[in-house]
Design a protein around this nucleic acid. Structure first.
Length: 520
RNA sequence: CGGGGUGUAGCGCAGGCCGGUUAGCGUACCUGCUUUGGGAGCAGGGGGUCGCAGGUUCGAAUCCUGCCACCCCGACCA
């Protein structure tokens, strides 16, 4: 921890007043409205407030849909960039498939259509016309012969396309990803976590053998886990879903599960081994080396803008958003403190080499010498938006050859020599990234419990957390637990204790402990 | 899709029960001066189809009817 070697205990910013009163002793509405609901008071409300006030997204006029605002979208772009690089590095290429899916396609894979039928938006007409009374109406003469589904996911249209692309084992594997929007007509939505339309990537791969397809699904799960831990600083548990939580149309669904600060679990990414289900549904056959026809093996995998919700709920605090440096659109904000224009010009000159040195190290830095905003306003703004490091430069610093450095994760401030500041900040950013991960990991460990008694489980499940318990492997037992406690099996983890035991509910044999938790 | 709640200036709200000047407050915005190391102070100023549509009435933000939207809680799902 390079930073802690030179940091002094900073002023305790947590003690600043949370409520302001004007001289009429009435609450100052603006300051009040700028306050976040505290996490302890109402975690869900804290999340909603934070997304809006950190300017990441807002509810649109369209039911269930959100507007992702520039600050939120910039973070998503950072995520995209990192993930896309990892996909390319594992041999994948990007392509784009249609938004519209003929209704009949969806119906070809039985369990798939069953899984999505209840939340599909459907296009039925292709033209409007003006009506003297009602303005504009749907032209009843422009009915589509076959309705089009707005994709809830693209397996069907992609496999229908793959049929034409795959003839021989020489065409395999086919490793394709697409960045797209999808629509699932959710009745109840929350910004980023569940919206009717969302952004995601979906990888769809075709393989000659079962083993290869299974390995692909596992490989991409590893990619997601690496991304979550190294970029988002969010520890995850890899595992396989139970039958009831499995993707509609998959043979196996793998997932990464993360614990949010309220102890609930959030599925942050999934990959599926699809077997030959879609190949059979769409007649995708290839000729193998023995000149025999064989159905193609498949995987698919995706992460969505839901990761934004995961990011927020993993690190942020009662002061606003906290971003891990590797995903922060601005990693260092520099704020000048000047009494007049002359002084500001002097600070511009003082800061210039600092900005250059930081940029030379590839650090995203914003020097905010906008004189229309005051320093205090900027401090609060950048804190709320989660910029990892803030540097303040005033007349005192110019005299002393120093700058004031504040880190967002701990809210500590420290005056440092300006001479080698770029190097120090570079180390500081690494330290922040590391600290965020370790804090989240500690939180998860402290809230993960090994449990053998169902009675005790029922007592403790409402407090949140992961519960490692034995399960007899039946959907009935899983259902019973869900009905009685609202907790579900988040996954059967790949690593950890593999000792067999007895189911906490029925006492029947259990192959290993699984993770029970309440979830998003 | 059920239960609850809310729609009044960009944002947050008061007023409504008990109809009656020009619809009010805070903040934000604009101008000026003083300020600037944690959301500055004072003074002045601009901004409103009171969610929409009907109805009752001399008169409706207020009462009545219908509709719409959004939020929260359940059921369903990523």
């Amino acid at each position: 921890m390079a930073f802690q070697a030179f940091v002094q205990p900073g002023r305790d910013l947590l003690s600043r007043p949370t409520c302001f009163w004007n001289k009429n002793n009435t609450k100052n509405a603006q300051n009040m409205s700028d306050q976040l609901t505290k996490r302890d008071t109402d975690y869900a409300q804290w999340y909603n407030d934070l997304v809006l006030k950190a300017d990441m997204a807002e509810h649109s006029e369209v039911r269930g849909c959100m507007v992702i605002k520039p600050h939120g979208y910039a973070i998503w772009e950072k995520m995209q960039g990192a993930l896309d690089g990892m996909f390319k590095a594992t041999g994948h290429v990007n392509a784009y498939f249609p938004l519209f899916i003929p209704k009949s396609y969806l119906a070809k894979e039985a369990s798939h259509v069953e899984g999505f039928a209840k939340e599909c938006a459907v296009v039925t007409h292709y033209r409007l016309k003006s009506d003297p009374e009602k303005g504009i109406i749907v032209d009843p003469d422009a009915k589509l012969e076959e309705e089009l589904i707005i994709r809830p996911t693209s397996e069907t249209i992609i496999w229908n396309t793959y049929r034409g692309w795959i003839k021989s084992y020489r065409d395999l594997p086919l490793l394709i990803n697409q960045w797209a929007n999808v629509v699932r007509w959710e009745l109840r939505t929350r910004l980023f976590l569940r919206t009717a339309e969302f952004l995601w990537q979906e990888g769809h791969t075709a393989h000659a053998t079962q083993q290869e397809a299974e390995e692909e699904a596992r490989r991409m799960l590893d990619v997601y886990a690496t991304f979550a831990e190294e970029w988002m600083a969010m520890p995850v548990i890899k595992g396989v879903k139970t039958a009831s939580e499995r993707f509609a149309g998959a043979v196996d669904t793998y997932c990464i599960e993360a614990m949010m600060q309220d102890g609930k679990s959030l599925q942050a990414g999934t990959s599926h081994f699809l077997g030959q289900n879609f190949a059979k549904a769409f007649d995708v056959l290839f000729t193998n080396k023995e000149n025999k026809q064989e159905y193609v093996w498949a995987s698919s995998w995706g992460v969505s803008t839901r990761l934004m919700g995961a990011l927020i709920m993993t690190h942020s605090d009662d002061h606003g958003l906290v971003l891990p440096p590797k995903l922060a659109p601005v990693q260092v904000a520099i704020v000048p403190i000047a009494k007049n224009g002359e002084q500001l010009t002097a600070i511009d000159g003082y800061v210039k080499p600092i900005v250059d040195a930081l940029r030379a190290k590839g650090i995203a830095v914003k020097y905010d010498n906008d004189d229309k905003r005051k320093p205090g306003w900027k401090f609060a703004e950048y804190e709320f938006k989660g910029y990892p490091v803030r540097i303040a430069v005033g007349p005192r610093d110019m005299e002393n050859g120093t700058v004031e450095v504040a880190r967002r994760d701990t809210l500590e401030k420290q005056v440092m020599q300006a001479a080698d500041i770029a190097e120090k900040v570079e180390h500081l950013l690494e330290a922040i990234q590391d600290n965020l991960y370790r804090k989240a990991l500690t939180m998860r460990e402290e809230n993960t419990h090994v449990i053998d008694s169902y009675a005790e489980f029922k007592d403790r499940i409402d407090q949140g957390g992961f519960f490692l318990a034995h399960w007899d492997g039946t959907p009935e037992t899983e259902e019973k637990v869900k009905n009685e406690t609202k907790a579900t099996i988040r996954c059967i983890p790949f690593t950890g204790d593999k000792t067999p035991g007895k189911c906490m509910v029925t006492g029947n044999p259990s192959a290993q402990r699984v993770i029970f938790a309440k979830s998003y």
